[in-house]
Nucleic acid binder design. Structure first.
Lengths: 222, 222
DNA sequence: GAACTAACCTAGTGGAGACTAGGAAACTAC
DNA sequence: GTAGTTTCCTAGTCTCCACTAGGTTAGTTC
């Protein structure tokens, strides 16, 4: 049955537990990215790892456990990107650009990680809750950086928090949307994608900071 | 087994074919929205429709067929929102605001339709392709409206098309992201959501039109 | 109220896939 | 080489779910 003729299955060699775990994690990220949680089968993950399904269970307690550990690892990577690139003394615009660029560089280098995180994990409600929970950790880690920048002081004010939440959602939507689009158009240079993100996100925010915000029914000045 | 004690299943009454089809479509939209394609079971859809699974197959050839027809119907609704609200003689900003407002009003009124369309339908690659195909129809219907507004003439120029594609992706990401966030915060008034969308999307675009775009490495002026 | 039609049901089939028990084979230490 | 350990496999079980065959009952027509 398992032929050994497929490229990924040739030379089925014995690996150390740690090495095999890595291989499985990488393969699982791919499959989850391509098929989502429900659509990914342990059998497929095992095949791409060069082993049979029981081996997967030697390293991960269950499909859920495997999924969760990948989710946490990749989200933690992305949080690091923000933590490393955004804070600093330079003008905020430059730091934003640098962060965006680093963020897109990460998803460029780890296309499957990006697709796995940004796909919506429908199906099992338990999985959806898990995804929401881990994503919330990222939000909690990154949003304060931006909040400080916007001069937001009163994090107890609920209207402020709502507005911040919406801007976070906008940021997330733009970055993830562009990332998914870009993953299918690898010929586009990264600067161009970053420039679009800057144009829509940063410039809009700047205007808001300057009190030039749009308000319902008409512009405040004019 | 099927008790009849649940609210949706009480009074299992005989309906006309057309009426039953509507009931099933509404129930299916709910379940697909909540669980995604894979996670939605025909049995659950049937139960919420007050019937047993075979009845679903009296109205739809297969689960895929059911899904596709819902996808097409809801996307067509949203295209209509743009077609009705965006074109006109008023200033573009006002027409954008009106369109955004109408768009959010639609997802406010049809929360399950929104969630079904904007969730990523992972799992079956065939389903993903179907989703992409139907979404592309919407894009093809709506993007020309915005392109005209931006003064884009040369739709044969590939760089222009790439940029337009990215702005479309940004628009999609922002609107869908805000819509999904909003669906969990029904206390937020619609104007506020629309205002955020205007601030990030329209103002950014306006600047770009005025040649004030951000470019990699620094601002063009200044 | 009998005949007809259309909506609906009971009772299955078949396949896919998560997960497991227990054993075989490879690498390591001596 | 032999013993011990660890990696990996064969061969299942069990549950869930899309989908179907064929019969039943509720409305409708005359």
């Amino acid at each position: 049955m398992s032929t050994g003729s497929t490229p990924e299955a040739t030379k089925r060699k014995r690996l150390s537990a740690a090495a095999r775990r890595e291989v499985i994690a990488a393969a699982a990220t791919e499959v989850f990215a391509e098929r989502g949680y429900h659509g990914a089968s342990i059998e497929e993950i095992a095949r791409r790892s060069g082993v049979t399904p029981p081996v997967v269970y030697d390293h991960f307690a269950s499909k859920q456990d495997l999924y969760r550990s990948l989710l946490e690892a990749h989200f933690a990577d992305l949080r690091e990107v923000w933590r490393i690139n955004f804070p600093g003394e330079d003008p905020a615009g430059e730091r934003a650009e640098r962060s965006f660029d680093a963020w897109f560089a990460y998803v460029e280098k780890h296309p499957f990680a990006g697709r796995m995180l940004f796909r919506d994990t429908t199906g099992d409600p338990e999985i959806a809750a898990m995804h929401a929970e881990v994503a919330a950790e990222s939000r909690a880690g990154v949003m304060p950086l931006a909040a400080a920048e916007l001069g937001v002081l009163d994090l107890a004010d609920s209207a402020t928090v709502d507005t911040l939440s919406m801007f976070w959602e906008v940021l997330r939507g733009v970055l993830q949307g562009l990332a998914m689009w870009w993953s299918e158009r690898p010929d586009i240079p990264r600067e161009q994608v970053v420039a679009v993100a800057m144009n829509t996100l940063w410039i809009g925010l700047e205007r808001v900071q300057q009190g030039e915000a749009w308000s319902p029914g008409g512009r405040p000045e004019t």
